[in-house]
Design a protein around this nucleic acid. Structure first.
Lengths: 246, 246
DNA sequence: CGCGAAGTTGAGAGAGGTCAACTCCGGTGG
DNA sequence: CCACCGGAGTTGACCTCTCTCAACTTCGCG
Protein backbone atom coordinates (compact mmCIF):
# COMPACT_ATOMS: atom_id res chain seq x y z
CA UNK A 1 0.00 0.00 0.00
CA UNK A 2 1.98 2.93 -1.27
CA UNK A 3 1.23 6.42 -0.03
CA UNK A 4 -0.39 8.83 -2.45
CA UNK A 5 1.58 11.99 -2.13
CA UNK A 6 0.13 14.56 -4.44
CA UNK A 7 -2.93 15.14 -6.49
CA UNK A 8 -2.51 14.34 -10.14
CA UNK A 9 -2.69 17.99 -11.05
CA UNK A 10 0.72 18.71 -9.56
CA UNK A 11 3.44 19.22 -12.10
CA UNK A 12 6.00 16.48 -12.21
CA UNK A 13 9.40 17.78 -13.14
CA UNK A 14 12.47 15.85 -14.09
CA UNK A 15 10.45 12.97 -15.40
CA UNK A 16 10.69 13.95 -19.00
CA UNK A 17 11.98 17.21 -20.30
CA UNK A 18 9.06 19.59 -20.84
CA UNK A 19 6.27 17.20 -19.98
CA UNK A 20 3.16 18.38 -21.81
CA UNK A 21 0.47 19.59 -19.40
CA UNK A 22 -2.00 17.07 -20.78
CA UNK A 23 0.33 14.21 -19.83
CA UNK A 24 1.23 15.88 -16.59
CA UNK A 25 -2.40 16.04 -15.56
CA UNK A 26 -2.65 12.26 -15.63
CA UNK A 27 0.21 11.72 -13.20
CA UNK A 28 -0.10 10.36 -9.68
CA UNK A 29 2.81 10.33 -7.29
CA UNK A 30 3.33 7.44 -4.90
CA UNK A 31 5.74 6.67 -2.09
CA UNK A 32 6.96 3.16 -1.25
CA UNK A 33 8.95 1.43 1.47
CA UNK A 34 11.61 -1.18 0.75
CA UNK A 35 10.08 -4.57 0.05
CA UNK A 36 6.78 -3.30 -1.32
CA UNK A 37 6.00 -4.38 -4.84
CA UNK A 38 4.87 -1.99 -7.55
CA UNK A 39 3.48 -4.71 -9.75
CA UNK A 40 3.86 -8.44 -10.08
CA UNK A 41 4.58 -10.62 -13.05
CA UNK A 42 1.39 -11.35 -15.04
CA UNK A 43 -0.39 -8.28 -13.66
CA UNK A 44 -2.19 -6.35 -16.39
CA UNK A 45 -0.13 -3.53 -17.88
CA UNK A 46 -2.43 -0.84 -16.65
CA UNK A 47 -0.01 1.90 -15.65
CA UNK A 48 3.26 3.31 -16.79
CA UNK A 49 5.78 4.33 -14.14
CA UNK A 50 8.78 6.54 -13.64
CA UNK A 51 11.16 6.56 -10.68
CA UNK A 52 11.68 9.97 -9.12
CA UNK A 53 13.91 8.97 -6.22
CA UNK A 54 15.07 5.76 -4.60
CA UNK A 55 15.50 2.44 -6.36
CA UNK A 56 13.61 -0.65 -7.45
CA UNK A 57 14.38 -3.92 -9.15
CA UNK A 58 12.72 -5.67 -12.07
CA UNK A 59 13.00 -9.40 -11.85
CA UNK A 60 11.85 -12.78 -13.05
CA UNK A 61 11.55 -15.93 -10.97
CA UNK A 62 11.80 -19.29 -12.63
CA UNK A 63 10.05 -22.52 -11.63
CA UNK A 64 13.16 -23.72 -9.76
CA UNK A 65 12.92 -20.71 -7.51
CA UNK A 66 16.03 -19.00 -8.82
CA UNK A 67 15.68 -15.32 -9.51
CA UNK A 68 17.09 -13.15 -12.23
CA UNK A 69 17.17 -9.39 -11.87
CA UNK A 70 16.40 -7.93 -15.27
CA UNK A 71 17.06 -4.32 -14.43
CA UNK A 72 17.70 -1.96 -11.57
CA UNK A 73 15.40 1.04 -11.78
CA UNK A 74 16.94 4.33 -10.74
CA UNK A 75 15.71 7.94 -10.81
CA UNK A 76 14.51 9.01 -14.28
CA UNK A 77 13.95 5.46 -15.43
CA UNK A 78 10.61 4.67 -17.03
CA UNK A 79 9.21 1.19 -16.71
CA UNK A 80 6.05 -0.84 -17.03
CA UNK A 81 5.49 0.70 -20.44
CA UNK A 82 3.67 -1.43 -22.95
CA UNK A 83 0.40 -2.01 -24.67
CA UNK A 84 -2.50 -3.86 -23.15
CA UNK A 85 -1.35 -7.17 -21.92
CA UNK A 86 0.46 -8.51 -18.90
CA UNK A 87 3.79 -7.72 -17.33
CA UNK A 88 6.53 -10.23 -17.97
CA UNK A 89 8.38 -9.26 -14.82
CA UNK A 90 7.68 -8.11 -11.31
CA UNK A 91 9.01 -4.88 -9.85
CA UNK A 92 9.62 -4.22 -6.18
CA UNK A 93 11.20 -1.42 -4.26
CA UNK A 94 14.58 -1.80 -2.60
CA UNK A 95 15.08 1.61 -1.00
CA UNK A 96 12.89 3.14 1.70
CA UNK A 97 10.98 6.20 0.64
CA UNK A 98 11.22 5.51 -3.07
CA UNK A 99 8.91 7.86 -4.96
CA UNK A 100 7.45 7.08 -8.35
CA UNK A 101 5.06 8.72 -10.77
CA UNK A 102 2.32 6.65 -12.28
CA UNK A 103 0.44 7.25 -15.53
CA UNK A 104 -2.61 5.42 -16.84
CA UNK A 105 -1.09 3.68 -19.84
CA UNK A 106 -4.10 3.62 -22.09
CA UNK A 107 -4.68 7.33 -21.74
CA UNK A 108 -1.04 8.06 -22.43
CA UNK A 109 -1.25 5.98 -25.59
CA UNK A 110 -4.34 7.85 -26.67
CA UNK A 111 -2.63 11.11 -25.91
CA UNK A 112 0.32 10.01 -28.00
CA UNK A 113 -1.95 9.63 -30.99
CA UNK A 114 -3.05 13.23 -30.77
CA UNK A 115 0.16 14.84 -29.52
CA UNK A 116 3.35 14.09 -31.53
CA UNK A 117 5.40 15.47 -28.68
CA UNK A 118 4.14 12.78 -26.30
CA UNK A 119 4.70 10.14 -28.94
CA UNK A 120 8.26 11.29 -29.42
CA UNK A 121 8.93 11.13 -25.69
CA UNK A 122 7.63 7.61 -25.51
CA UNK A 123 9.94 6.68 -28.37
CA UNK A 124 12.82 8.27 -26.53
CA UNK A 125 11.97 6.30 -23.43
CA UNK A 126 11.86 3.11 -25.43
CA UNK A 127 15.23 3.88 -27.04
CA UNK A 128 16.70 4.58 -23.63
CA UNK A 129 15.38 1.29 -22.34
CA UNK A 130 16.96 -0.43 -25.32
CA UNK A 131 20.23 1.28 -24.65
CA UNK A 132 20.23 -0.01 -21.09
CA UNK A 133 19.36 -3.53 -22.18
CA UNK A 134 22.13 -3.57 -24.74
CA UNK A 135 24.65 -2.35 -22.20
CA UNK A 136 23.51 -5.06 -19.86
CA UNK A 137 23.77 -7.68 -22.55
CA UNK A 138 27.36 -6.83 -23.30
CA UNK A 139 27.97 -6.97 -19.56
CA UNK A 140 26.50 -10.46 -19.21
CA UNK A 141 28.63 -11.56 -22.13
CA UNK A 142 31.82 -10.72 -20.27
CA UNK A 143 33.56 -13.93 -19.38
CA UNK A 144 35.05 -13.28 -15.98
CA UNK A 145 33.41 -12.34 -12.72
CA UNK A 146 35.90 -9.48 -12.21
CA UNK A 147 34.91 -7.93 -15.51
CA UNK A 148 31.21 -8.19 -14.84
CA UNK A 149 31.45 -6.67 -11.40
CA UNK A 150 33.71 -3.94 -12.73
CA UNK A 151 31.30 -3.18 -15.57
CA UNK A 152 28.47 -3.16 -13.06
CA UNK A 153 30.20 -0.59 -10.88
CA UNK A 154 30.96 1.58 -13.89
CA UNK A 155 27.37 1.34 -15.11
CA UNK A 156 26.01 2.24 -11.69
CA UNK A 157 28.36 5.20 -11.32
CA UNK A 158 27.37 6.32 -14.80
CA UNK A 159 23.67 6.12 -14.10
CA UNK A 160 23.99 7.90 -10.79
CA UNK A 161 26.01 10.62 -12.47
CA UNK A 162 29.06 9.81 -10.36
CA UNK A 163 31.39 8.40 -12.99
CA UNK A 164 34.94 9.49 -12.19
CA UNK A 165 33.73 11.50 -9.22
CA UNK A 166 35.79 11.29 -6.04
CA UNK A 167 32.90 10.78 -3.63
CA UNK A 168 31.24 7.65 -2.36
CA UNK A 169 28.68 5.68 -4.32
CA UNK A 170 25.81 4.29 -2.31
CA UNK A 171 24.73 0.89 -3.58
CA UNK A 172 20.97 0.72 -3.19
CA UNK A 173 21.00 -3.05 -3.57
CA UNK A 174 22.27 -6.01 -1.59
CA UNK A 175 25.13 -8.28 -2.68
CA UNK A 176 22.53 -10.88 -3.44
CA UNK A 177 20.77 -8.52 -5.83
CA UNK A 178 24.05 -7.75 -7.54
CA UNK A 179 24.68 -11.46 -7.93
CA UNK A 180 21.27 -12.08 -9.46
CA UNK A 181 21.81 -9.13 -11.74
CA UNK A 182 25.16 -10.36 -12.99
CA UNK A 183 24.25 -14.05 -13.08
CA UNK A 184 26.94 -14.88 -10.52
CA UNK A 185 26.90 -16.52 -7.11
CA UNK A 186 26.77 -14.18 -4.10
CA UNK A 187 30.04 -15.59 -2.88
CA UNK A 188 31.73 -14.79 -6.14
CA UNK A 189 30.54 -11.20 -6.00
CA UNK A 190 31.77 -10.93 -2.45
CA UNK A 191 35.16 -12.36 -3.39
CA UNK A 192 35.56 -9.90 -6.25
CA UNK A 193 34.72 -7.00 -3.95
CA UNK A 194 37.38 -7.99 -1.46
CA UNK A 195 39.83 -8.61 -4.26
CA UNK A 196 39.21 -5.11 -5.64
CA UNK A 197 39.58 -3.75 -2.11
CA UNK A 198 42.94 -5.38 -1.58
CA UNK A 199 44.12 -4.11 -4.93
CA UNK A 200 43.23 -0.59 -3.91
CA UNK A 201 40.71 -0.12 -6.68
CA UNK A 202 37.80 0.50 -4.33
CA UNK A 203 37.26 1.20 -0.65
CA UNK A 204 34.22 0.12 1.33
CA UNK A 205 32.67 2.23 4.06
CA UNK A 206 30.14 -0.09 5.58
CA UNK A 207 28.49 -2.54 3.25
CA UNK A 208 26.69 -0.21 0.92
CA UNK A 209 29.06 2.72 0.45
CA UNK A 210 31.73 2.25 -2.18
CA UNK A 211 34.46 4.67 -3.02
CA UNK A 212 36.31 4.12 -6.25
CA UNK A 213 39.95 5.02 -5.60
CA UNK A 214 41.31 4.04 -8.98
CA UNK A 215 38.98 4.73 -11.89
CA UNK A 216 41.62 3.88 -14.46
CA UNK A 217 42.19 0.57 -12.75
CA UNK A 218 38.47 -0.12 -12.67
CA UNK A 219 38.09 0.65 -16.34
CA UNK A 220 41.11 -1.48 -17.11
CA UNK A 221 39.45 -4.46 -15.49
CA UNK A 222 36.63 -4.48 -18.02
CA UNK A 223 38.06 -5.89 -21.19
CA UNK A 224 35.56 -3.64 -22.91
CA UNK A 225 33.83 -0.69 -21.49
CA UNK A 226 30.16 -1.36 -22.03
CA UNK A 227 29.09 2.10 -20.95
CA UNK A 228 31.67 3.98 -22.99
CA UNK A 229 30.53 2.25 -26.15
CA UNK A 230 27.09 3.53 -25.30
CA UNK A 231 27.86 7.11 -24.52
CA UNK A 232 30.87 7.80 -26.57
CA UNK A 233 30.95 5.48 -29.56
CA UNK A 234 34.68 5.99 -29.85
CA UNK A 235 34.37 9.64 -30.70
CA UNK A 236 36.29 12.48 -29.16
CA UNK A 237 35.09 13.41 -25.67
CA UNK A 238 33.14 16.60 -25.42
CA UNK A 239 31.09 15.99 -28.52
CA UNK A 240 27.37 15.73 -28.27
CA UNK A 241 26.28 12.32 -27.09
CA UNK A 242 24.42 10.23 -29.61
CA UNK A 243 20.99 9.04 -28.63
CA UNK A 244 20.39 5.44 -27.95
CA UNK A 245 19.44 3.46 -30.96
CA UNK A 246 18.91 -0.10 -32.10
CA UNK B 1 27.64 -2.67 -52.90
CA UNK B 2 24.15 -4.04 -52.52
CA UNK B 3 21.88 -4.30 -55.53
CA UNK B 4 18.98 -1.92 -55.75
CA UNK B 5 16.02 -4.05 -56.65
CA UNK B 6 12.99 -1.89 -56.94
CA UNK B 7 12.03 1.73 -57.17
CA UNK B 8 10.93 3.26 -53.93
CA UNK B 9 7.37 3.53 -55.17
CA UNK B 10 6.84 -0.21 -55.00
CA UNK B 11 4.72 -1.35 -52.11
CA UNK B 12 6.55 -3.27 -49.46
CA UNK B 13 4.39 -5.90 -47.86
CA UNK B 14 5.01 -7.90 -44.74
CA UNK B 15 7.22 -5.24 -43.27
CA UNK B 16 4.63 -3.74 -41.03
CA UNK B 17 0.94 -4.50 -41.11
CA UNK B 18 -0.79 -1.89 -43.27
CA UNK B 19 2.20 0.28 -44.04
CA UNK B 20 0.90 3.78 -44.76
CA UNK B 21 1.47 4.79 -48.38
CA UNK B 22 3.47 7.82 -47.27
CA UNK B 23 5.95 5.58 -45.45
CA UNK B 24 5.88 3.05 -48.20
CA UNK B 25 6.90 5.66 -50.75
CA UNK B 26 10.16 6.25 -48.92
CA UNK B 27 11.25 2.62 -49.08
CA UNK B 28 14.15 1.28 -51.11
CA UNK B 29 14.77 -2.41 -51.48
CA UNK B 30 18.30 -3.80 -51.49
CA UNK B 31 19.84 -7.19 -52.03
CA UNK B 32 23.04 -8.36 -50.30
CA UNK B 33 25.43 -11.28 -50.49
CA UNK B 34 26.85 -13.00 -47.40
CA UNK B 35 29.73 -11.05 -45.92
CA UNK B 36 28.61 -7.62 -47.08
CA UNK B 37 28.02 -5.12 -44.33
CA UNK B 38 24.88 -3.01 -44.08
CA UNK B 39 26.45 -0.48 -41.77
CA UNK B 40 29.42 -0.33 -39.49
CA UNK B 41 29.76 0.68 -35.89
CA UNK B 42 30.04 4.48 -35.57
CA UNK B 43 28.38 5.08 -38.94
CA UNK B 44 25.76 7.83 -38.78
CA UNK B 45 22.23 6.55 -38.17
CA UNK B 46 20.92 7.71 -41.48
CA UNK B 47 18.58 4.89 -42.46
CA UNK B 48 16.22 2.50 -40.81
CA UNK B 49 16.12 -1.06 -42.08
CA UNK B 50 13.92 -4.08 -42.15
CA UNK B 51 14.84 -7.60 -43.20
CA UNK B 52 12.56 -9.13 -45.81
CA UNK B 53 14.38 -12.40 -46.36
CA UNK B 54 17.69 -13.92 -45.39
CA UNK B 55 19.63 -13.15 -42.23
CA UNK B 56 22.14 -10.71 -40.76
CA UNK B 57 24.00 -10.25 -37.51
CA UNK B 58 24.43 -7.22 -35.28
CA UNK B 59 27.70 -7.28 -33.42
CA UNK B 60 30.26 -5.43 -31.38
CA UNK B 61 34.01 -5.95 -31.47
CA UNK B 62 36.09 -5.09 -28.46
CA UNK B 63 39.68 -3.83 -28.39
CA UNK B 64 40.99 -7.34 -27.70
CA UNK B 65 39.49 -8.50 -30.95
CA UNK B 66 36.80 -10.66 -29.38
CA UNK B 67 33.38 -10.29 -30.89
CA UNK B 68 29.95 -10.32 -29.34
CA UNK B 69 26.86 -10.87 -31.45
CA UNK B 70 24.15 -8.64 -30.08
CA UNK B 71 21.33 -9.92 -32.22
CA UNK B 72 20.52 -12.09 -35.19
CA UNK B 73 18.27 -10.26 -37.61
CA UNK B 74 15.66 -12.37 -39.32
CA UNK B 75 12.75 -11.59 -41.66
CA UNK B 76 10.39 -8.93 -40.25
CA UNK B 77 13.02 -7.56 -37.87
CA UNK B 78 13.56 -3.83 -37.87
CA UNK B 79 16.97 -2.48 -37.01
CA UNK B 80 19.17 0.58 -37.24
CA UNK B 81 16.34 2.62 -35.83
CA UNK B 82 17.30 5.62 -33.75
CA UNK B 83 17.62 9.34 -33.74
CA UNK B 84 20.47 11.24 -35.28
CA UNK B 85 23.69 9.91 -33.95
CA UNK B 86 25.94 6.97 -34.63
CA UNK B 87 25.39 3.24 -34.61
CA UNK B 88 26.76 1.42 -31.58
CA UNK B 89 27.04 -1.83 -33.50
CA UNK B 90 27.85 -3.05 -36.95
CA UNK B 91 25.51 -5.20 -39.03
CA UNK B 92 26.56 -7.60 -41.75
CA UNK B 93 24.74 -10.15 -43.82
CA UNK B 94 25.23 -13.87 -43.25
CA UNK B 95 22.96 -15.37 -45.90
CA UNK B 96 23.36 -14.94 -49.65
CA UNK B 97 20.55 -13.05 -51.32
CA UNK B 98 19.34 -11.34 -48.18
CA UNK B 99 16.85 -8.61 -49.09
CA UNK B 100 16.34 -5.53 -47.02
CA UNK B 101 14.07 -2.50 -47.08
CA UNK B 102 15.66 0.81 -46.21
CA UNK B 103 13.94 3.98 -45.03
CA UNK B 104 15.47 7.42 -44.60
CA UNK B 105 15.28 7.74 -40.81
CA UNK B 106 14.81 11.45 -40.58
CA UNK B 107 11.88 11.46 -42.95
CA UNK B 108 10.26 8.60 -41.09
CA UNK B 109 10.59 10.54 -37.86
CA UNK B 110 9.04 13.57 -39.46
CA UNK B 111 6.26 11.43 -40.84
CA UNK B 112 5.67 10.01 -37.38
CA UNK B 113 5.03 13.50 -36.08
CA UNK B 114 2.21 14.02 -38.56
CA UNK B 115 0.83 10.49 -38.73
CA UNK B 116 -0.04 8.80 -35.41
CA UNK B 117 -0.25 5.49 -37.20
CA UNK B 118 3.41 5.65 -38.18
CA UNK B 119 4.34 6.70 -34.67
CA UNK B 120 2.47 3.77 -33.23
CA UNK B 121 4.23 1.36 -35.55
CA UNK B 122 7.60 2.69 -34.54
CA UNK B 123 6.63 2.21 -30.91
CA UNK B 124 5.59 -1.32 -31.68
CA UNK B 125 8.90 -1.97 -33.37
CA UNK B 126 10.74 -0.61 -30.34
CA UNK B 127 8.69 -2.77 -27.99
CA UNK B 128 9.41 -5.79 -30.14
CA UNK B 129 13.10 -5.02 -30.02
CA UNK B 130 12.89 -4.75 -26.26
CA UNK B 131 11.09 -8.06 -26.08
CA UNK B 132 13.89 -9.71 -28.01
CA UNK B 133 16.57 -8.13 -25.87
CA UNK B 134 14.88 -9.23 -22.67
CA UNK B 135 14.53 -12.76 -23.95
CA UNK B 136 18.17 -12.72 -24.82
CA UNK B 137 19.15 -11.42 -21.44
CA UNK B 138 17.37 -14.20 -19.63
CA UNK B 139 19.12 -16.56 -22.02
CA UNK B 140 22.56 -15.21 -21.18
CA UNK B 141 21.74 -15.49 -17.51
CA UNK B 142 21.25 -19.23 -17.81
CA UNK B 143 24.10 -20.92 -16.03
CA UNK B 144 24.81 -23.97 -18.14
CA UNK B 145 25.86 -24.23 -21.73
CA UNK B 146 23.17 -26.85 -22.42
CA UNK B 147 20.47 -24.49 -21.27
CA UNK B 148 21.73 -21.61 -23.36
CA UNK B 149 22.02 -23.65 -26.51
CA UNK B 150 18.60 -25.16 -25.86
CA UNK B 151 17.07 -21.73 -25.32
CA UNK B 152 18.78 -20.53 -28.47
CA UNK B 153 17.28 -23.32 -30.55
CA UNK B 154 13.84 -22.67 -29.11
CA UNK B 155 14.16 -18.95 -29.78
CA UNK B 156 15.27 -19.54 -33.33
CA UNK B 157 12.46 -21.99 -34.02
CA UNK B 158 10.01 -19.52 -32.53
CA UNK B 159 11.24 -16.64 -34.64
CA UNK B 160 11.23 -18.72 -37.80
CA UNK B 161 7.70 -19.85 -37.04
CA UNK B 162 8.83 -23.47 -36.73
CA UNK B 163 8.33 -24.06 -33.03
CA UNK B 164 7.12 -27.62 -32.52
CA UNK B 165 7.03 -28.20 -36.27
CA UNK B 166 8.32 -31.56 -37.52
CA UNK B 167 10.47 -30.19 -40.36
CA UNK B 168 14.08 -29.13 -40.45
CA UNK B 169 15.32 -25.80 -39.21
CA UNK B 170 18.03 -24.21 -41.31
CA UNK B 171 20.55 -22.37 -39.16
CA UNK B 172 21.59 -19.30 -41.11
CA UNK B 173 24.65 -18.81 -38.90
CA UNK B 174 27.89 -20.67 -38.25
CA UNK B 175 28.75 -22.40 -34.99
CA UNK B 176 31.14 -19.57 -34.32
CA UNK B 177 28.31 -17.05 -34.59
CA UNK B 178 26.20 -19.09 -32.21
CA UNK B 179 29.08 -19.15 -29.76
CA UNK B 180 29.54 -15.38 -29.93
CA UNK B 181 25.82 -14.96 -29.51
CA UNK B 182 25.64 -17.14 -26.40
CA UNK B 183 28.95 -16.01 -24.92
CA UNK B 184 30.35 -19.53 -25.10
CA UNK B 185 33.40 -21.06 -26.77
CA UNK B 186 32.85 -22.63 -30.18
CA UNK B 187 34.04 -25.94 -28.83
CA UNK B 188 31.44 -25.86 -26.09
CA UNK B 189 28.65 -25.18 -28.57
CA UNK B 190 29.87 -28.03 -30.68
CA UNK B 191 30.00 -30.36 -27.70
CA UNK B 192 26.45 -29.49 -26.70
CA UNK B 193 25.22 -30.15 -30.24
CA UNK B 194 26.73 -33.61 -30.31
CA UNK B 195 25.46 -34.28 -26.81
CA UNK B 196 21.93 -33.35 -27.88
CA UNK B 197 22.36 -35.51 -30.95
CA UNK B 198 23.36 -38.57 -28.94
CA UNK B 199 20.44 -38.02 -26.60
CA UNK B 200 18.08 -38.05 -29.56
CA UNK B 201 16.84 -34.53 -28.96
CA UNK B 202 18.01 -33.25 -32.33
CA UNK B 203 19.26 -34.65 -35.60
CA UNK B 204 21.72 -32.94 -37.90
CA UNK B 205 21.52 -33.13 -41.69
CA UNK B 206 24.72 -31.52 -42.81
CA UNK B 207 26.03 -28.74 -40.64
CA UNK B 208 23.26 -26.21 -40.96
CA UNK B 209 20.06 -28.26 -41.00
CA UNK B 210 18.70 -29.21 -37.61
CA UNK B 211 15.70 -31.34 -36.95
CA UNK B 212 14.27 -31.30 -33.46
CA UNK B 213 13.10 -34.82 -32.71
CA UNK B 214 12.06 -34.25 -29.11
CA UNK B 215 10.53 -30.84 -28.43
CA UNK B 216 9.54 -31.78 -24.90
CA UNK B 217 13.09 -32.83 -24.20
CA UNK B 218 14.42 -29.61 -25.64
CA UNK B 219 12.08 -27.51 -23.53
CA UNK B 220 12.95 -29.56 -20.49
CA UNK B 221 16.62 -28.70 -20.92
CA UNK B 222 15.99 -25.00 -20.38
CA UNK B 223 15.41 -24.57 -16.69
CA UNK B 224 13.17 -21.71 -17.69
CA UNK B 225 11.66 -21.17 -21.02
CA UNK B 226 12.67 -17.70 -22.03
CA UNK B 227 10.43 -17.59 -25.07
CA UNK B 228 7.34 -18.95 -23.33
CA UNK B 229 7.55 -16.25 -20.69
CA UNK B 230 7.50 -13.81 -23.54
CA UNK B 231 4.62 -15.13 -25.54
CA UNK B 232 2.49 -16.72 -22.95
CA UNK B 233 3.11 -15.06 -19.61
CA UNK B 234 1.67 -18.07 -17.84
CA UNK B 235 -1.77 -17.64 -19.29
CA UNK B 236 -3.91 -20.30 -20.88
CA UNK B 237 -2.83 -21.21 -24.41
CA UNK B 238 -5.05 -19.93 -27.16
CA UNK B 239 -5.56 -16.52 -25.63
CA UNK B 240 -4.42 -13.46 -27.50
CA UNK B 241 -0.71 -12.89 -27.15
CA UNK B 242 0.25 -9.86 -25.13
CA UNK B 243 2.39 -7.30 -26.84
CA UNK B 244 5.94 -6.84 -25.77
CA UNK B 245 6.37 -4.49 -22.87
CA UNK B 246 9.03 -3.24 -20.54
C1' DC C 1 23.78 -8.47 25.09
C1' DG C 2 21.70 -11.53 21.93
C1' DC C 3 19.62 -12.61 17.82
C1' DG C 4 18.89 -13.07 12.78
C1' DA C 5 20.10 -11.54 8.38
C1' DA C 6 23.63 -10.32 5.42
C1' DG C 7 28.20 -10.76 4.12
C1' DT C 8 32.71 -13.07 3.99
C1' DT C 9 35.98 -16.83 3.76
C1' DG C 10 37.52 -21.64 2.85
C1' DA C 11 37.73 -26.27 0.64
C1' DG C 12 36.09 -29.20 -2.94
C1' DA C 13 33.97 -30.50 -7.13
C1' DG C 14 32.32 -29.58 -11.61
C1' DA C 15 31.79 -26.94 -15.79
C1' DG C 16 33.64 -24.48 -19.42
C1' DG C 17 37.81 -22.24 -21.61
C1' DT C 18 42.07 -23.13 -24.00
C1' DC C 19 45.14 -25.39 -26.95
C1' DA C 20 46.05 -28.84 -30.09
C1' DA C 21 45.03 -32.56 -33.17
C1' DC C 22 41.93 -34.40 -36.17
C1' DT C 23 37.89 -34.88 -39.44
C1' DC C 24 34.81 -33.30 -42.77
C1' DC C 25 33.48 -30.66 -46.63
C1' DG C 26 33.57 -27.85 -50.77
C1' DG C 27 36.33 -25.77 -54.18
C1' DT C 28 40.33 -25.60 -57.24
C1' DG C 29 43.55 -27.05 -60.42
C1' DG C 30 46.48 -30.51 -62.45
C1' DC D 1 39.05 -38.06 -61.91
C1' DC D 2 41.79 -37.29 -58.17
C1' DA D 3 45.02 -34.76 -55.17
C1' DC D 4 45.40 -30.85 -52.72
C1' DC D 5 44.04 -27.08 -49.92
C1' DG D 6 41.75 -24.21 -46.46
C1' DG D 7 38.11 -23.31 -43.49
C1' DA D 8 34.63 -24.96 -40.50
C1' DG D 9 33.47 -28.26 -37.23
C1' DT D 10 34.54 -31.89 -33.88
C1' DT D 11 37.00 -34.29 -30.27
C1' DG D 12 40.40 -34.86 -26.48
C1' DA D 13 43.40 -33.42 -22.52
C1' DC D 14 44.32 -30.20 -19.32
C1' DC D 15 43.71 -26.25 -16.44
C1' DT D 16 41.30 -22.42 -14.59
C1' DC D 17 37.47 -20.31 -12.82
C1' DT D 18 33.12 -20.32 -10.66
C1' DC D 19 29.55 -22.79 -8.07
C1' DT D 20 28.35 -25.30 -4.03
C1' DC D 21 28.22 -26.20 0.66
C1' DA D 22 29.62 -25.08 5.06
C1' DA D 23 31.58 -22.40 8.75
C1' DC D 24 32.45 -18.11 10.34
C1' DT D 25 32.12 -12.98 10.92
C1' DT D 26 29.93 -8.66 10.76
C1' DC D 27 26.13 -5.64 10.90
C1' DG D 28 21.80 -3.82 12.42
C1' DC D 29 18.35 -3.86 15.70
C1' DG D 30 15.58 -4.77 19.66
Amino acid sequence: MPTTMMSSAVRVRGLMPAVPPALDALAAMLRYQAGQFIYRSADPTEFWYCILSGAARKYAVNPNGSRRIVDFLLPQDLFGIGRDGRHRFGVDVIADGTTIVRYPGRLVERLADSDPCVARQIREAAFESIRRLETRMLMLGLGRARERVGAFLLELAERLGQRRCPGEICLPMSRCDVADYLALAVETVSRVFTQLRFQGVIRLNGLRNIQVCDWDGLEGICSWDTTASVHNCGRAPGMALPFARF
